[in-house]
Amino acid sequence: MEEGPSRTAMMAAAARAAHLIVDREPYLFQDTAAEALLGTRAAELLSYHRTSGDHPVLSGTRAQVTARSRYTEERLSAGFTQYVILGAGLDTFAYRSPLAKAIAVYEVDHPATQRWKQELLTAAELDSSAVEFVGVDFEDDNLASRLITHGFDPNQQALVSWLGVSMYLTESAIATTLDSLGRFARGTELIMEYALPSGLRDEAGRVYAEFALEASAQQGEPWLSFFTPEQVTELLERHGFAVAEHISQRQAVDSALWQREDALHPADLCRLVWATVRG
């Protein structure tokens, strides 16, 4: 990863913030800290959603990031005391959710991204004292060792989220990370987002991909990995997980929330998988 801000992280945060501005109630998810965290870039990034919010990429991104965040954070209510956010980017859970007071939060990302985020947090006057920032170079560092150094207890169950990341990695890099996660305590849960191959996308997913994949590649963040649900299941099982469920964007939130009169609609481009460490 290059030194400096991640455009992908900024776009995801802007989409979460824009959902509360552009879309109508009922909201899929309420990220009340994203706009503040974006700081001086907020006005520019949100202006795209304000002026062209019905564009397939913009509305599709809002649907994607809000649905996956809601599903993941609802899993935290199962009583976890440790939450590991892989590729945390500009995630804001620790700075807005009441659940963060009772959960040890470990944000894992490239050191350059974390330095940038900490500067944004300071500028936004958002308290980060309860967060452990675990800088990891996934090519060279051992994930488990780095987490333990920062206070993570590998003998206690945790929820691990890995959202909006796997599509930017090679299968080899994904497998290396899963190998570390599969050694965590029995019952540890993983919620991972993955991209579908073209043949499994629905029409909305096809249109989104037509715009988004080319744009990501041009910005230096190409999508590298695509999986069928069967391939993800096999990959996870090979690394010590039992797969509980594959979740489409439509299934990630209550069906009533998709009964809408705005531009927000589910697309089958990416899915979530919910899996548990067998131990």
Results as ranks from 00 to 15, higher is better:
residue 1 M to K: 12
residue 4 G to S: 09
residue 7 R to S: 11
residue 10 M to R: 15
residue 13 A to W: 09
residue 15 A to V: 10
residue 19 H to W: 04
residue 24 R to D: 15
residue 25 E to C: 07
residue 26 P to K: 11
residue 27 Y to G: 09
residue 27 Y to R: 12
residue 29 F to D: 05
residue 37 L to P: 07
residue 37 L to H: 01
residue 39 G to A: 05
residue 40 T to F: 04
residue 41 R to E: 14
residue 43 A to T: 08
residue 51 T to S: 03
residue 53 G to N: 00
residue 53 G to Q: 06
residue 57 V to C: 01
residue 58 L to A: 06
residue 59 S to Q: 05
residue 70 R to W: 09
residue 72 T to P: 06
residue 77 S to N: 10
residue 80 F to C: 03
residue 82 Q to G: 04
residue 84 V to T: 02
residue 86 L to Q: 10
residue 86 L to K: 12
residue 87 G to S: 09
residue 88 A to W: 00
residue 94 A to P: 06
residue 95 Y to S: 10
residue 96 R to W: 10
residue 97 S to T: 08
residue 100 A to D: 01
residue 100 A to M: 03
residue 104 A to H: 13
residue 105 V to L: 08
residue 109 D to E: 09
residue 112 A to I: 00
residue 114 Q to V: 11
residue 115 R to P: 01
residue 115 R to L: 13
residue 117 K to H: 12
residue 117 K to F: 12
residue 117 K to T: 11
residue 119 E to F: 03
residue 121 L to A: 08
residue 122 T to Y: 09
residue 123 A to C: 07
residue 124 A to S: 10
residue 125 E to I: 10
residue 126 L to D: 04
residue 128 S to N: 12
residue 130 A to K: 15
residue 130 A to C: 08
residue 130 A to S: 15
residue 134 V to P: 13
residue 135 G to M: 14
residue 136 V to Y: 07
residue 139 E to P: 01
residue 140 D to T: 15
residue 141 D to G: 09
residue 141 D to Q: 08
residue 146 R to N: 11
residue 151 G to R: 09
residue 152 F to W: 14
residue 152 F to A: 09
residue 165 V to A: 11
residue 170 T to R: 03
residue 173 A to N: 03
residue 181 L to K: 04
residue 181 L to W: 00
residue 183 R to P: 02
residue 184 F to D: 02
residue 187 G to R: 06
residue 190 L to K: 07
residue 192 M to H: 00
residue 192 M to V: 01
residue 196 L to Q: 00
residue 200 L to P: 01
residue 204 A to L: 10
residue 204 A to Q: 10
residue 208 Y to L: 08
residue 208 Y to H: 00
residue 209 A to K: 03
residue 209 A to V: 02
residue 212 A to E: 13
residue 220 G to E: 10
residue 226 F to A: 12
residue 230 E to K: 03
residue 231 Q to P: 00
residue 232 V to Q: 07
residue 235 L to K: 05
residue 235 L to H: 06
residue 239 H to P: 04
residue 241 F to G: 08
residue 244 A to T: 14
residue 245 E to G: 00
residue 245 E to I: 06
residue 246 H to W: 02
residue 254 D to T: 04
residue 254 D to V: 02
residue 261 E to H: 15
residue 263 A to H: 05
residue 264 L to C: 06
residue 265 H to F: 08
residue 271 R to D: 08
residue 272 L to P: 10
residue 275 A to W: 14
residue 276 T to E: 15
residue 276 T to N: 10
